[in-house]
Design a protein around this nucleic acid. Structure first.
Lengths: 241, 241
DNA sequence: ATGTCTTTGTGAACGCGTGCACAAAGATAG
DNA sequence: CTATCTTTGTGCACGCGTTCACAAAGACAT
C-alpha cells in the first residue's frame, strides 16, 4: 500500500545477509569462467581478486552458505558453482516477461545474459498495437491486453518493466495482480508495491548523476583556490523569500 | 573551509556520505516533478513519500547540504532543485561518450534521461567498421580508432561502456589513457582501474539473480515442509573428493 | 508581544557490514 | 606418526548508515 514502506526485515533473508546475496552472482561469474578453463580448485585469495573483492569478505560470505572449502587447498570450483547456483535459485528455470519493448526493452530481449543462466524470456509485451506480432529477438511481441493471460499461463513470477515512466506504476499493478512477485524496474519512477513483492530498480540517469558528483569533486579539488568566489553565482533570482 | 586535516579517508567525498549522494538524484527527480506542477514548497514528509524514503533520512541527507528548509513550512522547491543540481554538478554540461553501439548502446543513445539533465552524448563509438557513419539517435557512429581524438577534442571525462565483456577492459584502459576519469560500465566484467578513476557498474543479470534468490525464498517459505527431502538432489556426482 | 502549532535539524543509540588477525584444520613430506 | 606449511573459518573491533525522538526555530493568529 503505502509508498515507500519497504521496511522489510529483508536484511537477513535466511541467515544470509543482503550484501552477501548481492555478491553471490559476482562470485558465480568468476567461478564459471574458471570452470570453463577447467580449473579444479581456487583459493579465496585468487577468487576474490577475480571478483574484485576483499578475500576476507569472500570467505565470510561463503561461511554463510556452509563450510565448502578445504583448508590448505581452497574451494572446489565445480562444487561451489553448484552450491551458489542452488542458493540463488538458478537450478530451476525462471520464466520472465518484459513489458515495454522500446529501445531498452529490445536490448534486454536480445541480452544473452538472461538466457544464459536460469532465465527464460517467456514473452515480450507492449501497449502499442503496431508492435503486436512483430518479432524481437526471435520472440513475437504481444499486446498488453494479453498480459494477465500470459502471466497466468506461463507461471511467471518475475517481471521486467522497461516502459516510459508514466506507464510503469500501472503496469506494475497489473503484473502484481496477475501473480508476479518480483519486479526489475528500468523506468525512472518510484514504484509502490504491497508487502511481499520485491522491487529492484536500475536507473541509468541516476548512475550518471552520481558519477557527475564525483567528477565535479575531482575537478574542484584541483582548482580549490580558483573558484573561491563563485560556486553559487547569482542566488538572488532563486532565493526564497 | 573544510581544508582541514581529515582528508585522508577517501571514502567520504566532501563531508557528504556516499549513501546520501546516491539518493540526491532521487530527490531531484521528485522535486522536478513538483516544480513542473508549480508546487511552491514541500515538507520532508511529502517529499520523502514521493522519493520512497524515510522522512528522517531525507532531512539528515539535506542537513549535509546545509539548512535549506524553513521550520514550520518545509522546503522551497525551486531553491532545493537548484541546490541539489549544483551539488551534483548538473549545472554544467557533461559531454559523454558511449562505446559499443549494440542493442544496449543504441538504447542508451536514445535514452532521453541522459540529455534531459546536464548530460550530452558527444559521440558514439564502435569497433565495427560497418557501423561507422551510420546514424544512431541522430548521431553518426564513429570508429574506435578515433576514440582518443574524440575524448581529447571534446574534453570528455565520463565514458559509458556497453561493449561485450571481452572488449570492456581494453576499452576501459584506452578511455582512461585518453583522459576519462569516470566510467559507467554495462559490460558484465570486473574492470580494474587506477586510483582516481571512478567506476559504477550496472549489471542486468546480477539484478535478476538477486530477484531469483528472494523469489526462491518466498516459494520455499510457503512449501517449507514439502521439500524437506530433496533440496540438494544427487550430490555424489559433483561432490569433491 | 505572546502563545500555539507545525516542521526542521540533529544528538544519540543501534545494527549491519567490513576488515584484521589468528587459531583450527587439513594436506603434504619425511 | 610427527612436523611443517598452507588456507580456511571466524571472533572482534570499528565505522558507516539508519532511525528515533526531541528541542529549537519560525510561521501565524490573537
Amino acid at each position: 500500500m503505502a509508498t515507500g514502506r519497504n521496511h522489510r526485515p529483508a536484511t537477513r533473508s535466511r541467515g544470509i545477509p543482503e550484501a552477501t546475496v548481492a555478491r553471490l552472482p559476482l562470485y558465480l561469474r568468476a567461478l564459471t569462467a574458471l570452470s570453463e578453463r577447467s580449473v579444479p580448485t581456487v583459493s579465496s585469495e585468487e577468487l576474490a581478486a577475480a571478483a574484485g573483492v576483499n578475500s576476507a569478505k569472500l570467505r565470510k560470505d561463503f561461511s554463510y552458505l556452509g563450510s565448502y572449502g578445504t583448508r590448505g587447498v581452497g574451494y572446489d570450483v565445480e562444487y561451489l558453482v553448484y552450491q551458489i547456483s542452488r542458493e540463488l535459485g538458478l537450478t530451476q528455470d525462471w520464466p520472465v516477461v518484459i513489458v515495454g519493448i522500446g529501445n531498452l526493452g529490445a536490448a534486454l530481449a536480445n541480452y544473452g545474459g538472461f538466457a544464459s543462466r536460469g532465465f527464460r524470456v517467456a514473452a515480450l509485451i507492449d501497449a502499442d498495437p503496431a508492435m503486436a506480432g512483430k518479432p524481437v529477438a526471435g520472440i513475437p511481441v504481444q499486446h498488453s491486453d494479453e498480459l494477465e493471460k500470459i502471466i497466468s499461463d506461463n507461471g511467471v513470477s518475475i517481471g521486467v518493466i522497461s516502459t516510459p515512466a508514466g506507464a510503469a506504476q500501472q503496469v506494475c499493478e497489473r503484473l502484481i495482480a496477475a501473480g508476479v512477485t518480483s519486479i526489475l524496474n528500468f523506468a525512472p519512477t518510484v514504484l509502490s508495491v504491497p508487502d511481499g513483492v520485491d522491487v529492484r530498480k536500475v536507473d541509468l540517469s541516476i548512475e550518471l548523476q552520481i558519477l557527475a558528483f564525483h567528477e565535479q569533486r575531482k575537478a574542484g579539488e584541483e582548482a580549490e583556490a580558483a573558484n573561491r568566489k563563485g560556486p553559487d553565482g547569482d542566488m538572488s533570482a532563486v532565493m526564497p523569500a
